[in-house]
Write a protein that binds this DNA or RNA. Structure first.
Lengths: 140, 140
DNA sequence: TTTCTTATTGATAAGTGTTATCATTAATGA
DNA sequence: TCATTAATGATAACACTTATCAATAAGAAA
């Protein structure tokens, strides 16, 4: 790929995404653009959304692939490893009692709870990363 | 459905889920049980995981359905509405500077960031809920 | 224990969301 | 204007999850 090209479709998709505040799905954007773009493919919407996220002009909300399950039903914090994609328990940090009241302060909806979602490297991947650096011969 | 029945499969699935701390996917559990349960269907795993979550003996981690996108790439907080499933912006509460250090304290991995995920009712659904109560004739 | 009822299973089709393929189109630079 | 090739539209392929259905087996009753 040589250089990005600004296409009318890309503009339309980005404009649509920025113009609304409901964090639409690809399907919803595709549907919204149908009147003006009856021939736009859903694949084009996915492609451009992905590219906008890559370029830092948008962000994707939500998980990666398959659902994961936890035999411990009590609420506790998890770390999602950015390298292996695994999900791991974290020693629960003290409940942040200020987050909810602060978030609810000027919000006309109702907030019933929140979760802290951490991301980083799990112990295994952290060690592997160290190993990789140790055996890195790029500069030899 | 009259009453829950305790099947060997259900026991095995729950035991497997509790015995491990890597928050496996349905597929991973299915695979792990294959030696002892070569004929167990993947559908049975999904069914029982769902039932365990319903019964409060397990929890599902991750999103609901389709990916959602945000035209604002800056990190900010979101509320997921438990009624309509929509995702909405929240006025960003002050960064919780203690959460990460505290979580990282005794964790042998590396924590690079975290997100606050709120859930509750969006303004629309909150109003609808009030309307529903107003027109509730269950006790008339 | 045996019988009966029906929740649950295994097998698989169907459904949903996303990505890959590929011939055609059109955005950029020469 | 022309040549190059990124991007498109159409659709197949894919991954994950749920629904369908005949066969099985758990639990209650006889």
């Amino acid at each position: 790929m040589e250089a990005k090209r600004m296409t009318r479709q890309r503009e339309a998709i980005f404009a649509q995404l920025v113009s609304r505040s409901d964090h639409p799905t690809a399907e919803e954007i595709h549907e919204a653009l149908k009147p003006d773009w009856p021939r736009m493919s859903l694949a084009t919407v996915y492609r451009n959304l992905g590219q906008l996220c890559e370029g830092g002009r948008a962000q994707k909300l939500g998980r990666g692939a398959a659902d994961r399950f936890d035999g411990n039903a009590a609420p506790h914090c998890h770390l999602t490893c950015e390298r292996c994609g695994g999900v791991f328990d974290l020693p629960t940090p003290p409940a942040d009692t200020e987050a909810e009241p602060q978030a609810a302060a000027n919000y006309p909806g109702k907030i019933t709870g929140h979760t802290l979602c951490f991301f980083g490297l799990c112990p295994n991947c952290l060690n592997r990363a160290a190993d990789d650096r140790a055996s890195d011969n790029t500069y030899l």
